[in-house]
Simulated scan of single mutants.
Amino acid sequence: MLTVGSIVIRCSDLERQRRFWAAALDYEPREPVEPDFVLLRPRSGAGPNVSLDAVPSERILPPRIHLDLYADDQRAEVERLESLGARRVEWSKRPPDADYVIMEDPEGNRFCVIDAAPEEAA
């Protein structure tokens, strides 16, 4: 059996990315934190880890892989992420009724915030 243990994000500014992703996901670093690597884990204990690896790499668009973050209150989460340093990404092919907002972290790594609010009963 396989499970996702950690998602690794390469970065240039490890400390800045650590602060962003820890606050964005309410994760905490596993000690000891290395000068070029940090593993962030959920405070609640549930979910995959996010590891940050201080290995600069070329940014390619569109990215081959990205995170989908599910939010019960999408608007509030997008605003909170923007206050932490994330930016919205406009995409001309995004349908008007899309349930996602494309964003990027302070270093340009893209992710989507998905509206996962429970639907009201009809």
Rank of each mutant, 00 (worst) to 15 (best):
R18Q: 06
R87S: 14
E58C: 03
A86M: 13
A46F: 09
A122M: 11
R110D: 13
D105G: 15
R18T: 07
V33C: 04
E31I: 00
D73L: 02
V50M: 06
L67S: 08
E77M: 11
W91P: 04
P106F: 14
R87A: 15
P62T: 02
E119H: 15
R64A: 12
L39W: 00
E82D: 10
P35M: 03
D115A: 12
E58Q: 07
I65Q: 14
D99P: 02
A98V: 05
C112L: 11
P35G: 03
A98G: 06
L40W: 00
I60K: 12
W21H: 04
N49C: 10
P32K: 00
P95W: 02
R88Y: 10
S57R: 10
E90K: 10
Q17E: 05
G85S: 14
G108W: 09
P106L: 15
L25D: 03
Y27D: 00
L67D: 08
D115G: 09
R59S: 09
A122V: 11
V89E: 10
L14A: 02
E104D: 14
C112Q: 11
V89L: 14
G5E: 08
M1E: 10
G108P: 09
E34M: 09
P35A: 08
A117S: 15
D36H: 07
Y27W: 02
A76K: 06
A24F: 01
D13V: 02
V55S: 11
L61N: 11
G108N: 13
P56D: 05
R94L: 13
A76S: 12
P118M: 14
V55I: 12
G85I: 11
L67H: 08
I60D: 07
P32Y: 01
L25H: 02
C11M: 05
Y100H: 08
L39V: 07
R80L: 03
S57C: 05
L52F: 01
I9E: 04
I9W: 01
R75P: 04
N109D: 10
V4G: 02
E90I: 10
E34R: 09
R18M: 03
L69E: 06
P63Y: 04
Q17A: 12
D68A: 14
S83Y: 01
D99E: 13
